[in-house]
Simulated assay, not measured.
Amino acid sequence: MGHGGNVVDELVTDHREVEELFSKIEELPAGHQDRKVYADQVTMELVRHSVAEEAYLYPAVREHVPNGDALADQEIEDHDRAERTMKDMERRQADDAEFDRLIGMLMSEIREHIADEEQNLFPQLRANCSEEKLDELGDKVRKAKKMAPTRPHPAAPDRPPANKLLAPGAGMVDRLRDALSGRGKHG
């Protein structure tokens, strides 16, 4: 992740990449080990994406969009629910029936969240922010994703400034764990 362009274009591209991974999971039969590999990749992408949105997108929504506090609070609530699902899924193997239930639940939650952002939040943000502000937010989101954690941390703060202070450290630890374990890579 890290595509260039304004914040909306950046995040929509992330959404398409997640949907592509969901499709790969759906194409495989239940119990197939690659379902877990793709689920780990989805988790890594979603956590980075969520951390960046919470650090920069939602504060901008609060500041620039009418009724922005309520919109941002709802999006953060969606993230919290998805993060708990990903945390539960992290402990499961692909041949576990609970894994199938959790990945199905996650796909449903994320697809609904994406639709809401793209049909409601993003158009409002575009209408209320200058192109310069949207470009600046895109740069900040890209930088945040590079430093963000890759594993779910449901107990971590999801609002500035604490999230901006803690995410880089958790991200470094997560990336080290991923490298050592080979998480998210085909064996």
Results as ranks from 00 to 15, higher is better:
residue 30 A to F: 15
residue 49 H to L: 08
residue 25 I to A: 02
residue 38 Y to P: 00
residue 45 E to R: 14
residue 35 R to T: 04
residue 50 S to G: 13
residue 19 E to P: 02
residue 51 V to N: 06
residue 29 P to K: 07
residue 44 M to K: 10
residue 21 L to F: 12
residue 37 V to Y: 09
residue 20 E to K: 10
residue 47 V to F: 14
residue 35 R to Y: 06
residue 41 Q to W: 08
residue 39 A to C: 09
residue 29 P to N: 13
residue 46 L to K: 01
residue 45 E to W: 13
residue 37 V to I: 14
residue 50 S to V: 12
residue 26 E to Y: 02
residue 20 E to F: 15
residue 18 V to D: 01
residue 24 K to V: 11
residue 41 Q to C: 11
residue 18 V to W: 01
residue 20 E to L: 13
residue 35 R to A: 00
residue 26 E to F: 04
residue 50 S to P: 04
residue 40 D to R: 05
residue 32 H to D: 14
residue 33 Q to F: 13
residue 18 V to E: 04
residue 32 H to S: 05
residue 42 V to M: 08
residue 18 V to P: 00
residue 21 L to K: 04
residue 49 H to Q: 06
residue 32 H to I: 05
residue 28 L to F: 06
residue 50 S to K: 04
residue 23 S to C: 12
residue 50 S to D: 15
residue 27 E to D: 15
residue 31 G to V: 03
residue 25 I to P: 00
residue 35 R to E: 05
residue 36 K to N: 09
residue 33 Q to P: 13
residue 36 K to E: 11
residue 48 R to K: 09
residue 39 A to R: 01
residue 43 T to V: 13
residue 28 L to Q: 04
residue 34 D to W: 13
residue 46 L to A: 00
residue 31 G to I: 02
residue 20 E to P: 05
residue 28 L to G: 03
residue 47 V to K: 05
residue 31 G to N: 04
residue 47 V to S: 08
residue 49 H to E: 00
residue 19 E to F: 01
residue 46 L to N: 03
residue 31 G to Q: 02
residue 32 H to C: 10
residue 28 L to T: 01
residue 28 L to M: 08
residue 20 E to D: 12
residue 40 D to I: 12
residue 41 Q to A: 14
residue 44 M to S: 14
residue 50 S to Q: 12
residue 19 E to N: 07
residue 24 K to D: 14
residue 29 P to C: 03
residue 27 E to Q: 09
residue 24 K to N: 07
residue 38 Y to K: 02
residue 19 E to G: 02
residue 25 I to N: 01
residue 49 H to A: 03
residue 31 G to D: 04
residue 32 H to G: 04
residue 24 K to L: 12
residue 49 H to T: 01
residue 50 S to T: 14
residue 32 H to Q: 03
residue 43 T to H: 07
residue 33 Q to T: 14
residue 25 I to K: 02
residue 43 T to D: 07
residue 18 V to G: 02
residue 47 V to H: 08
residue 29 P to T: 08
residue 51 V to C: 09
residue 49 H to S: 04
residue 40 D to M: 12
residue 29 P to W: 06
residue 46 L to P: 01
residue 50 S to C: 13
residue 38 Y to M: 04
residue 41 Q to V: 13
residue 34 D to C: 09
residue 41 Q to S: 07
residue 32 H to R: 07
residue 34 D to F: 13
residue 37 V to S: 01
residue 51 V to L: 15
residue 41 Q to H: 11
residue 29 P to A: 09
residue 27 E to Y: 08
residue 19 E to T: 03
residue 48 R to D: 12
residue 48 R to F: 10
residue 26 E to S: 08
residue 47 V to C: 10
residue 41 Q to T: 10
residue 48 R to V: 07
residue 35 R to F: 05
